[in-house]
Design a protein around this nucleic acid. Structure first.
Lengths: 218, 218
DNA sequence: CATTTAATTTAGACAAAACGAAAAATAAAT
DNA sequence: ATTTATTTTTCGTTTTGTCTAAATTAAATG
């Protein structure tokens, strides 16, 4: 497995290619900030290796082997992110770039020991679930904050957009994973929300609310 | 800096190219398990970049910039080795291979935080000194065990050969860094030694003794 | 000092990964 | 059904790092 191959598998997975859905070369090229012609080349190569199903002009999807490989890389990425935050005091907007490098380190023992050191975390700093060693994915019962009904309560469990600017915005406004949020009111005009979070009332734009995952209190 | 360039600089340094001594392409090729012609190509490239001085048919030596770069890679390698042993319970014969990968991760903050997490260690698990952030090398006052006089005492501080078989041999015979060793006798015939280590008397071949660094008790 | 031997470099070729231009196939529109 | 537009692929080229084989230089030997 080369680094490049691993990055392609990861990108295809993130675009939904794990559910035997066909992903277009264009979509992959955009996700990876490369050119469609390069994607075609790699599609053939990965197809040769039995990691993707590729039909010309139809796009690619991951085979079972491809899914497992993608999950193992995502597992490493997210475990390293937890490590950086919990053990080295990185902030959640700093971890992605470094984890992009660390995810390619080849040593099964290393990642298992990191997992153990962190006490087998289930979620990464952005609230994304960490696949288990045998490639199982923990799905969560979560909704976007923007889709919660008025007066409902929930706990903030993840972000959809994990870009640096968004994460910094959340920090600045003291919005953190684990916070309890109650929807007080919705403004029809611009879809903004009035919420109570950890005691304080505040107003939140639709843009923000549609990028925050919340777990409904049952 | 590509991974390959970094590996060449490291190899040249380990062969003594840091002391403005010229290292032959053959020696570098052997150290890196590659071909002399490849070394020539890279020598030109590194020379272009001002990291080595290269004269055709004369070999290469590191420039000041080259030394600093080599030291920063060696620093990362050794810090990661300490991390693997101290935090993840790797044995000292397992760490090299993984550290060879980790040393190429590009993040100044990462390695500084690892350094801090480990409480700024001065030596790696094999007793090799860890360069400081500003590229200073801590030289040690040490001798090979084979060069110590009869009846002298010392503390085992490092290994010269850090190959897996040698390290496993040391483990099996309970020879560890930090142990106190006293030379009881030298056998002229085969240069083997009789020593007392942590209370026990034992016999050690010249081959072993000439790969163990000892710090003389003053 | 001439000649052999060993080390080193050059030249040409290859593989991986990427790109751009142009051709081919598909999808959309009329 | 045919034209038009878009997407995707093909093909030739580039870069990085490597190799083999041939040529060159330096060293060693008589």
């Amino acid at each position: 497995m080369t680094r490049s191959e691993e990055n392609y598998l990861k990108a295809i997975f993130h675009l939904g290619g794990g559910d035997s859905k066909s992903i277009t070369t264009n979509a992959i090229a955009e996700q990876m900030e490369t050119k469609p012609s390069s994607v075609t080349d790699m599609a053939k190569k990965l197809s040769e290796k039995g990691l993707v199903d590729y039909v010309r002009y139809q796009g690619v999807s991951l085979t079972e082997a491809g899914v497992q490989t993608a999950l193992s890389i995502i597992r490493k990425h997210r475990l390293w992110e937890v490590f950086l935050v919990k053990k080295l005091d990185f902030t959640w907007d700093e971890v992605h770039e470094v984890a992009e490098q660390l995810e390619h380190i080849k040593s099964e023992k290393l990642i298992d020991k990191i997992d153990e050191l962190l006490d087998f975390p289930k979620y990464d700093p952005h609230g994304d679930p960490i696949p288990t060693k045998d490639g199982k994915f923990q799905e969560r019962d979560e909704k976007l904050l923007s889709e919660m009904p008025i007066n409902s309560k929930g706990v903030c469990v993840g972000v959809k957009d994990s870009s640096v600017p968004f994460l910094k915005f959340l920090d600045k406004n003291n919005i953190a994973l684990g916070n309890t949020i109650q929807i007080l009111d919705k403004e029809d005009f611009d879809n903004s929300l009035r919420i109570r979070m950890e005691g304080n009332e505040m107003r939140i734009s639709h843009q923000i609310a549609s990028n925050l995952f919340v777990k409904k209190n049952s």
